[in-house]
Each structure stands twice: as C-alpha cells, then as structure tokens.
Design a binder for these strands. Structure first.
Lengths: 337, 337
DNA sequence: TTGTACGCGTTATCAT
DNA sequence: ATGATAACGCGTACAA
C-alpha cells in the first residue's frame, strides 16, 4: 500500500502539500494539485485512516449501543443512523446492551475504548448519574430517554402523548372496559405510556382498574400471558391495549387460543407500529413510533455537535401518531355521550 | 488521557515493559508487573486503540455488510456476529448495501477504507469476479453465497434442500396444485429454492406449471401482488408456497382480501422462519433458516483465519428445517398413493 | 528480565 | 504557495 510519502516523491512535492490536497482546504496551486492527484491515482493511494486518526485525534466513527441488534425496532433505528452518517463518511460501530446494567456498561466501555468520536445510546438500565459522568468525557446522544441535565442531547418520543392517543381512540370506539398489558414499569417509556393512557381514561370517565393492568415484558410472551391472565379473570373486557406491538401479537395468539375472535369478541391495540403490525390479522391498530427518523436525528445531532456539519434542523421531541387499522371493534354507544 | 509513557515513568520502568504487561505474553518479573499494574490503575490508563493499530497494523475491527440494517433477517445475523466477536474484543462496523451493485461496492469500499481486519459480507449484486479480486487484498467471509474459488470462505444454507423440504411437506399434505411466489430469480438463493421445490414436485408427479410461478421481490408487496395474480387466474390452486416469510405475509393479506380463508380455501407456506411467522394467523408453516448461527459461524471463521483464535468447530453448509404450523391444510388424498 | 531506539502514516506548526 | 519537522501513542527488534 502506497503511503503519502511515496506520493510526495512521485509528485516531487513535500508531504505537507500532499496532505493539503487530500484535505482539500489549503491554498495549493492548481498545477501542483494536478501533479499530486496524478501521483495518487498512479499509485492507487489510499490514506490510512488509522494514521489519520492518530495524528488528528479523530476516528470518524460513532458508536451505537442498542438493546438488541435484532428486532424491528432497533433495526430501523440503526438504519436511520447509518444512512445519515455514511453520507458524511462517518463509520458506525455497533454493540448490544441487552437491557441489562452490566451489559450496557460493558458495551459503552467497549465503544469508548475504540475511541469513538461520539456515542448514540439506547440504554435502559444504566443510571442517569452514570450517563452524566460519561457525558463529561464523551459526546453522547440518548435516544428514547431524557436525562435531567442532558436534555440537549436527548432525542425522544412523547410516550405520554402516545398513551393519550391510544386512550382517545379506544374511547371513541366505545370501549369503556379495557385491560392493559404494560411494559416493565421500571422502564421510563412504559411508565409514560401507561400514565398518558390512564390520564385520558380518567378524564373521560372510564379509568382502568389496577387489577386490569398486567405488567408484561415487551415481548410476545408477555402479551400472551397477559391476555390469558386478564381475560380469564375478567371476561367482560372488551379491549386489550398493549404497550407494544410484540405483546399485541402475543395477546392475539392468546385470545384466539381461548376461542374468542378479534375484534368481535375483544379488540386489540398496540404501540410502535412495527412493520409486522400490518402482517397481523386483523391488521393491528397502533401508535406510530418514528424511530427511523429519530435515529437520523440523533445522527444529525452528532454531525452538528461533534463534526460541525450542519445537515438540517434539529428537533428533540417527536410526536407519535395514531394508526387505526382493523383490530379494534367500533362498539355501539351504550351510555352517556 | 494518560499515555504508556506516563505509566512507565510512574512505575519506574521502560515503555517496553509496560507494553509487555499489557499484552500479557512476555516474561516480566512478578514484582515489576505489579508495579506497572499499580501505575496503570492509578493513572486510569487506557491504551489508545488507534496507536495500537498503527503500530501493530491491526485494527481489531471487522466490517459487516448486509443488504438492510432493518428487517429481522439481518438483525439476527448481526446479532450472532456481534456477540461472538465482542467476546474476543473485536469491534463490529456495519454498513448497508441495499442489494444494489453500486451501493454494495461503496459499502465495501467504505469498510475497507476503515482498515477492517476482515469483512463479513451478505452481498447479492456484486459479481463473483469482484469478490475474488477483493479477497486477494482483504480476508472476507461470504454469507449465503458460494463463489467458486472461495468456497472455504463461504457460509451458506442449503437453499436447494429447503425447497425440497417445502415440496415434501406440501405433497404429504395432499397438495398437488400449487402456486409459487418466488424471489427475484437473479438471486442465487431464489433460484435454488425454486429448483429444490420443483425437482421434488416433478419427482412426485405434480410439477408446478410455469405460469403458476410468480416472480416476487422478497417483500410483503410482492407476496400480495403474487397471490392476487395467481389466484385470480388460477382459482383452483390449493396452496401458495412463498420464497420467504415476508411474501407469505403479503399473500395472506391478499387471500383474505379476496374473501378466501386460510388454510381452508388456500394454504400458505413460507421460508426463513422469521420471528413474526409465529405472529401471523394462522401461524405460518415455513422453513427454518438458522441465520443467527450462521452469523456466529462467520465470526468464528474470521476469528480463526484472521486472529488465530480457535472458538469451535467450523462448518460451512447449514441445513434448513421444516417447521409445520397451521397455515397449511391437510387435504384428503384423492388420487394415487 | 529489562531498556533503547526506531517505525507506523498522518496532521499540524512553523518557517521560508 | 510550499517545505521541514515535530508530534500522535504504541509495538518490537535488538541490545544490554
């Protein structure tokens, strides 16, 4: 592999000049520039990114930590990030945190050890305090989490509003007696989704009783178990609202296994609007989570703050959107209004 | 950030000695070693991976190119790879190729420019020739593709066998009149799946007529369109076999839209056994594609070939497995045997 | 067992 | 506009 030195020899100029034409900026006479370019081409010269990093103290790589590499949610997120970053010649290094404190820390540590210029994190288990410490040494952007003191570096969805939208949709379809399969309540988003839902339901006169709430795991299995548990004890429930689409899918399986039909016997509502929500039968009504856009925005924020590249307007709070499909039955209005 | 030099100062030894204890190998007196370790801890020393790379000509990072970062298939693949690599302190850099020649080449070029020690590729559009050239300069492992001359570096599924398994399953359930929604036939795996299916069907006396084959795009939409097209023209088809689960999901949607029921009116069979196959209703019968294991194996292969780390037995050809669920109807045997 | 000195391929700071 | 030269932080023969 040819080095910058050989190029300078062939072109009959100094290292510095070659470096200048590489980085485009400085003043180099057109003629010299051409000589250098020719030499580069002839030698098929490729700069060593490692040497560049050592000298410039920049790796041009940003680390991403997600809970899982699989799963539609993180996939879309990474896709948004990578697309944006690559366009600006920045590399994307990935690691998984598995929603566990120790694993998340290891992942972050791992990324840091690689000298990433910045980190984009979707973490759930590590503490706010830990993140604040981390932010002192490394530029970070947090997705789906708001840490007091780091608000400027947080990109998140208004989960509370999503809960509200779900509530409105249910009430408007006449459901007054609904069960809720929540996410793990130690997770911020799970708490907010429930709060938004409940607040509207209270406001509209049909709050969910505590024992109509099942705390699931955000996975298919939690939805399955939750639906079974809820429906067995409270067969009068006309709808099951789930804190994410995976659990909605699980709930659907359980409902069918109990010999009931969807949405005639019981309606199902999801959250996230993952791709597969459209594959379900009946197609799942849910709340759209623009995770891909949020990933792009995180990348944009890094580009701006770390690399001084302006690639569009920054917005930190995203709004969910209610998607009504076929999994919710419109009940005849029985009581007031 | 403390450097190796400062550590050597504090410990009262030379740079070389510090380097030795870092890399564990050489002979260092226990006492000196402890001094160094203490100094490291005191200074919270972290070696600069960049400087290490420059000096050792190793980046300890491997690049991954997949068609898309989202989608359950690639997610599982990356997950398998990352888990394995991280355990051995290797970093994973990702890029997407979008199944297009130009984009795949750019992605590879991008990864190469980062001086990855090795590349793990899931590419479809670039030519065998291109890959052979690439392999001369960079260690590569190919997933789901066999390039003549690079067999040792290819990890793949026996797609042909998968097609065969699907055929057997259909025939044994009494289906003689089946339609096929194939993947893009310029893709190797799509061709093989069809070939395996057709060969068995011919052998068992019920080949698929050419016009009962619809060439889809491996996406939900292709399945939808394919099912419509096929079923409208050939309503007598008792089953639709799809070259992947996404298209099977699309086909299911189309079938229902046509007022038919699954599997009573028409059976559906998939390929890949993506997670969402279990969310579908009825749960999709399909062929299991152990992509996660294959990802791990690819990682294992680079660990062995590039880093001389033995992390288990290497196998290059994986076998699919038939998963029978509820989307296929068992027909009464009408004719011979 | 430990230390010296050079090389890795750039960038960046001064001069010129 | 261009060149010389010192970092950058570490690995590694080779010497001691």
């Amino acid at each position: 592999m040819a080095t910058i030195y050989e190029v300078s020899q062939l072109a009959g100029v100094s290292l510095a000049t070659v470096s200048r034409v590489m980085n485009g900026n400085d003043n180099v006479r057109e003629k010299t520039k051409q000589k250098v370019l020719a030499a580069m081409k002839e030698l098929d010269y490729r700069p060593s990114s490692v040497a560049q990093s050592l000298a410039s103290n920049r790796t041009n790589s940003v680390g991403i930590l997600v809970s899982e590499l699989h799963g539609p949610f993180y996939g879309d997120m990474m896709s948004g990030i990578e697309t944006k970053l690559r366009r600006h010649k920045k590399h994307t290094i990935i690691a998984a945190g598995h929603s566990q404190k120790k694993s998340e820390k290891e992942g972050i540590e791992f990324l840091v050890s690689r000298n990433c210029d910045a980190l984009i994190l979707h973490v759930e288990a590590v503490s706010d305090q830990y993140l604040k410490e981390l932010a002192k040494n490394t530029p970070i952007v947090l997705i789906n989490r708001i840490v007091p003191g780091l608000e400027e570096q947080c990109i998140s969805l208004n989960n509370y509003m999503g809960g509200q939208q779900a509530a409105h949709s249910m009430v408007e379809n006449g459901h007054q007696n609904i069960g809720y399969i929540s996410g793990p309540l130690w997770k911020q988003d799970a708490k907010e989704r429930l709060a938004g839902l409940q607040d509207i339901l209270i406001q509209r006169g049909c709050p969910i009783a505590d024992d109509h709430i099942y705390e699931g795991d955000y996975q298919e299995q939690g939805g399955f178990l939750g639906a079974k548990a809820l429906l067995e004890r409270y067969p009068q429930l006309s709808a099951l609202v789930c804190a994410n689409d995976e659990m909605a899918a699980g709930a659907m399986n359980a409902i069918r296994e109990m010999g009931k039909s969807i949405p005639d016997d019981v309606s199902v509502f999801g959250f996230d609007n993952m791709l597969f929500a459209q594959y379900l039968f009946p197609k799942l009504s849910t709340i759209d989570y623009p995770i891909r856009e949020m990933g792009k925005m995180a990348a944009r924020l890094v580009l701006k703050e770390v690399y001084n590249i302006d690639s569009g307007k920054i917005s930190r709070l995203f709004e969910p959107r209610c998607i009504e499909r076929q999994s919710v039955n419109a009940l005849p209005i029985s009581e007031a209004i």
